[in-house]
């Protein structure tokens, strides 16, 4: 695996940190690769915008911060606007389709979207949208072995919510595979309606 910089961003309460943690853990603990995760702290990290960075590589990671992410996972409009400019040319953008309206996209950016919140709600718990997003990321990028991600999900969530989270992961993963096979025309699904309020 080449050095890959990933930023996961959204708003407080969406489980942004956990998504990044699962991705990093899958690489570092279950796939024999290296992963370094960092996050923003302090008052600015409570409520409002939340963002975590994770770097994956098959070699030890020296510089700890993400500078030009290869992948941006955006789960809020604010996160999208704030972090899109740093996305590497030719980078991959994954968005929550009900929460992010994609506009002003520079040429060369690949984008895929998923209604992760709605899918999570179908499973009965909106809060697992972050794990739906991880599944989606896993299928689209194929950076990590699905089983490594699955194990990392199981190992990172409270025991009582394991089954739910695994289902959320599978749901997102399946949605991602279908997206790759052209069953979702993600790029054309951005709602033009005002964003709903969440949390």
């Amino acid at each position: 695996m080449q050095l890959t910089e990933i930023r996961v961003a959204g708003f407080g309460g969406q489980g942004v940190m956990l998504s990044a943690h699962i991705i990093g853990k899958a690489a570092a603990v279950y796939q024999g690769a290296y992963a370094t995760m960092t996050q923003s702290f302090g008052p600015e990290a409570r409520g409002g915008a939340a963002s975590a960075q994770v770097i994956l590589s098959d070699k030890p990671i020296l510089y700890p911060y993400v500078t030009r992410p290869d992948v941006l996972i955006a789960m809020s409009q604010e996160a999208y606007s704030r972090f899109l400019p740093e996305l590497k040319p030719g980078g991959l953008l994954l968005v929550e389709s009900d929460l992010v309206r994609v506009s002003d996209l520079p040429a060369g950016i690949r984008v895929h979207s998923i209604p992760a919140t709605r899918l999570a709600e179908e499973l009965g718990r909106r809060m697992v949208l972050n794990v739906v997003m991880v599944g989606f990321f896993g299928a689209i990028t194929a950076l990590l072995e699905p089983d490594a991600l699955r194990k990392a999900v199981i190992d990172s969530v409270p025991p009582a919510t394991r089954d739910l989270n695994v289902r959320a992961f599978e749901k997102g993963f399946e949605y991602g595979l279908n997206t790759l096979h052209g069953e979702h025309h993600a790029e054309s699904e951005h709602p033009s309606l005002p964003l709903e309020a969440h949390d």
């Binding site: 943690h21 990093g24 570092a28 603990v29 290296y34 992963a35 370094t36 995760m37 960092t38 996050q39 702290f41 990671i61 700890p64």
Partner: peptide
Amino acid sequence: DEVVGHMTEK
């Protein structure tokens, strides 16, 4: 330091 304290790795 803050980076080492807050960074997550194996």
